[in-house]
Simulated scan of single mutants.
Amino acid sequence: MSESVSGIAPDERPPLEPTDAGGLDAAGALALLCAGAITVTGRLVDASNATLYCEISHDGVVGHCVYKPVRGERALWDFPDGTLAGREQAAYLVSEATGAGIVPPTVLRDGPFGAGMVQLWIDTDETVDLVALTRSDDPQLRAIALFDAVVNNADRKGSHLLPGPSGRIYGIDHGVTFHAENKLRTLLWTWRGQRLRADELELLTRLRVALSASGAEPP
């Protein structure tokens, strides 16, 4: 997302590393997610809600994605029914507005089982020890910790962090975010008690201005 659109200066890195996304860049990924034909090929059985692994194709471009139909969302006592997919897309939009590129390209659209969230599949580096990673002081994790505080993430698990082959770390599974009450729950505590840096305060200020300009209510 450009500065003229979001009011946020873009990160020096591209918003999506093609080596992590089957060769797709951010623009190509979004075009594919929006217009592609979705074919369900599997299911991620460890997920709490219906989470389907799919092939997606359009105009000769083929990729993979995760599709979470609204009808497959498990009811939660503290979140309104049928809202998790929308919260996932909202988390992507906030990620893009910050320029951090944390959340893979994500859209809301119809699929084989109705409306739902469709998110680009990210390849991962299986050699990375997730336990060691979450206990490290990798600056990418600090950025994710700040992002989680902004979106009020109620479910940051180690398995929700995807270390890509490029070395970039992505965050997924943001269905339980944006609650009106404080719900932050995370394992990223390396920076607890530390003050925000000047650049982080500046980013949050710009994000607040951008949300206000868009008509959204700032957190």
Rank of each mutant, 00 (worst) to 15 (best):
C54Q: 01
F178L: 01
T98V: 13
T106D: 09
V61Q: 09
Q140S: 06
K68P: 00
D59P: 02
R142M: 10
A31D: 15
A143P: 00
A213C: 02
T51N: 07
P69I: 02
G175V: 01
D81M: 13
D155L: 08
N152I: 08
L32G: 02
L30M: 12
I38T: 09
R185V: 09
I8L: 15
L84E: 00
V151N: 00
S6K: 04
P139S: 09
A115D: 04
D20M: 07
D110S: 13
T177G: 01
T177E: 00
E126Y: 07
D138A: 05
A143H: 07
G72D: 10
Q119T: 07
A50Y: 06
A149S: 11
D138F: 01
A115N: 06
A145H: 11
L161I: 05
A26Q: 11
V107S: 00
E217T: 15
P139H: 09
P165T: 06
V150E: 01
D123W: 00
L44D: 05
P18S: 13
I38A: 10
I56R: 03
T19E: 15
G7C: 10
A149D: 11
E17V: 14
C65N: 03
G171M: 06
H64Q: 15
F178C: 04
D123N: 04
A132P: 08
E96Y: 00
K183C: 04
E217P: 07
E73G: 01
L161P: 02
